[in-house]
Write a protein that binds this DNA or RNA. Structure first.
Length: 601
RNA sequence: GCCGAUGUAACUCAGGGGUAGAGUAGCUCUUUCGUAAAGAGCAAGUCGUGGGUUCAAAUCCCACCAUCGGCUCCA
């Protein structure tokens, strides 16, 4: 089945869901039911009393059912799915008819959503069509399966959610039912297995199991706390991130976490992001302060602190620092969306002629970093939409030149890229690097962005060869983006099995019996002495239990120590995947580990 | 923020108008063991927080807090 065919099948399944719902709940108002990736959804406005009556939960005594159960819940899925299956058996081919505006409005006179859709169709000058299959007819543009009975192999309702009509929070909230559909039962099962796998890898679960970070109600929503292991991971990644940029001439700077809001009024962020700022009150002064939501204005103030010559450029600052954004409560999600986010940020100030070379450097840094940590990349070249030039600031020639440069460097560096018009920031085009994880999901990570606007707003200058003042170009660049978000992606990508150089515990020495403890601790100390994170598991547990625990903690290497090992002065080495490396002399093992860690394997 | 679900021991979860339950983890003891879970015992909870209904609330109702699924895909 090709993509188009799949889409048609999933869209048909949405019709099937709507038909089943109408059979069970005739007073439901239908809206829309498009196909989406792996499935479909349909938005309904239910009649509360009807839902209560039909799907009333059983009560042993005569206690009233809670008033709150006024919409569908997941318990109803089995019955709906059954009804869908029944209806599908009776379905032949889709047929359609064209109706006039008056006919359409008459048919849907009680359904404000359909009426609104009809208005839209008329405005666009399109034909109004109704599609019918079995006894079910729905306002629809088409795009269905030829033979739904044959094409719809397997489907399953997955979840229920609120969704605003047309995605606008001013509108009424409808009930959305999500489902998934495939051409065969086998594919459906595979998809469900994938969903299970994603659940197992959920960074929130692994963060707890591997003791990486915690959330506390007393500290607050979206404000994760990092344990020793999680902190180690953050710092190792950050040291690497900053180290790669240090090689390209970036210097560390430091800026405070609160600032007068005037800074953001000048930068333009106050107008655009004012709602997301945490406000801070001073008890000593009348200054209005905020927690910083980003670092570019601060770095620009460092640049602005003295007169710059073209000879000084490029000037490159970097700072890994925590920013604070008052994200909507409902959008917070583990480490993926937080209110305290740590950016491995940097800003390069340069002449227009230097953009090219700096981009080359940054792309090299991105490629090195993601290759090392084992993630593939795609690059999205985010350009402005030529249809709506008014959305962007800066003159056309500059934009053209900037986009040209970006395209050129993308080609030169052989990026796996595609262009996306309309995705640029208002102040300049950018390259969005997307990391592809082990389950094939894409995540936006590093984004070098060109900025012509802010340097101008802050009045940044440099003196050129002719002694004239010029405005520098600023390039924003974070390699991981936010460390928290990056970790959420990376934890799920690796399922917690970090490469050796990042593993919080690299080697666990497992003595078989108490009499081997001393030797195990001696080896652990020797490894620690050369900077290897080793520990000896001297609990009074069986070897199997120790192996199991170390494996579950994803410790890369286990060193088993018993009578034979002590006699021969060796260690039996086992990897976390069960592979047996045999008996190695302690020094051999140590050298090999040290070597791999240094090479970031 | 909005819609819906959930909140019971450190963790995973069962139960449910009238002594609070299990498994795992923890602690103690026994066991000293060869590549993914030894055995026994002990201890552990203001049933998210606050209010209400009731003779009685962890259970029912309300509010709040937190967590989870969604809120871009325009028939």
């Amino acid at each position: 089945m090709n993509d188009q065919h799949l889409q048609a099948m999933r869209h048909s399944t949405a019709h099937l869901l709507a038909a089943a719902i109408l059979e069970l709940l005739p007073n439901t108002k239908l809206t829309i039911g498009p196909a989406i990736e792996h499935g479909f959804y349909y938005d309904f406005e239910f009649n509360k009393e009807e839902v209560q009556k039909v799907f009333k939960q059983k009560n042993n005594d005569n206690r009233p059912v809670s008033e709150k159960i006024d919409t569908l819940n997941a318990n109803a899925f089995a019955r709906i799915e059954q009804k869908m299956a029944e209806l599908l058996k009776t379905w032949g081919a889709f047929s359609h008819r064209e109706v006039t505006e008056k006919e359409a409005k008459d048919i849907y006179k009680d359904n404000p959503y359909k009426l609104e859709l009809i208005e839209g169709i008329i405005k666009k000058g399109e034909k109004i069509t109704l599609y019918k299959v079995g006894d079910f007819e729905d306002l629809c543009r088409g795009g269905h399966s030829e033979e739904p009975k044959k094409d719809i192999g397997a489907f399953k309702l997955l979840s229920i959610a609120g969704a605003y009509w047309r995605g606008d929070e001013k509108n009424k909230m409808l009930t959305r039912v999500y489902g998934t559909a495939f051409a065969s039962k086998k594919e459906l099962e595979e998809h469900l297995v994938m969903l299970e796998e994603a659940k197992k890898r959920d960074h929130r679960k692994l963060g707890k199991d591997l003791d990486l970070f915690v959330l506390s109600d007393l500290v607050g929503k979206g404000l994760p706390l990092f344990t020793p292991k999680g902190t180690l991971l953050r710092e190792l990644l950050n040291d690497y991130s900053q180290g790669l940029r240090e090689e390209k001439g970036f210097s560390k700077v430091w800026t405070p976490h609160i600032t007068k809001n005037d800074l953001y009024k000048v930068s333009g962020h106050w107008d655009k992001f004012g709602k997301e700022l945490f406000l801070v009150k001073s008890q000593e002064t009348t200054d209005e302060m905020v927690m910083k939501p980003m670092n570019c204005p601060h770095h620009q103030q460092i640049y602005a602190s003295r007169i710059r010559s073209y000879r000084d450029l490029p000037i490159k600052y970097m700072e890994t620092t925590t920013d604070y954004r008052d994200e909507k409560a409902g959008e917070l999600l583990g480490l993926a969306r937080v209110r305290s986010l740590t950016q491995d940020d940097s800003h390069a100030f340069c002449t227009p002629e230097q953009i090219d070379a700096i981009y080359d450097e940054l792309i090299e840094v991105v490629q090195t970093f993601y290759k090392t940590i084992g993630m593939k990349l795609r690059a999205r070249l985010s350009f402005r939409d030529p249809q709506t030039p008014e959305k962007y600031i800066g003159d056309d020639a500059l934009w053209e030149k900037a986009q040209e440069i970006i395209l050129k460097v993308a080609k030169k560096n052989k990026l796996d890229y595609y262009t996306a018009e309309g995705e640029a920031a208002f102040y300049g085009p950018k390259i969005d690097f997307m990391a592809i994880d082990a389950l094939g999901r894409e995540w936006q990570v590093a984004t070098p962005q060109l900025d012509f606007v802010q340097p101008k707003r802050f009045g940044l200058t440099y003196i050129d060869q002719d002694g004239k003042e010029q405005t520098p170009v600023m390039i924003h660049f974070a390699l991981m983006g936010s460390i928290e978000r990056f970790l959420s992606v990376y934890i799920e990508h690796t399922a917690g099995a970090f490469p050796l150089w990042l593993a919080p515990v690299q080697v666990s020495l497992l003595p078989i019996a108490d009499r081997h403890n001393e030797y195990a601790e001696k080896i652990a100390k020797e490894l620690q002495a050369v900077g290897i994170r080793a520990e000896a598991d001297v609990r009074s547990e069986r070897l199997q239990a120790k192996i199991r625990d170390a494996t579950l903690q994803k410790v890369p290497f286990m060193g088993i120590i018993g009578d034979k090992e002590i006699a021969d002065e060796v260690i039996s080495v086992r990897k976390r995947n069960g592979e047996d490396l045999g008996r190695l002399a302690a020094t051999t093992f140590l050298t090999q580990l040290r070597n791999d860690i240094d090479k970031k394997r």
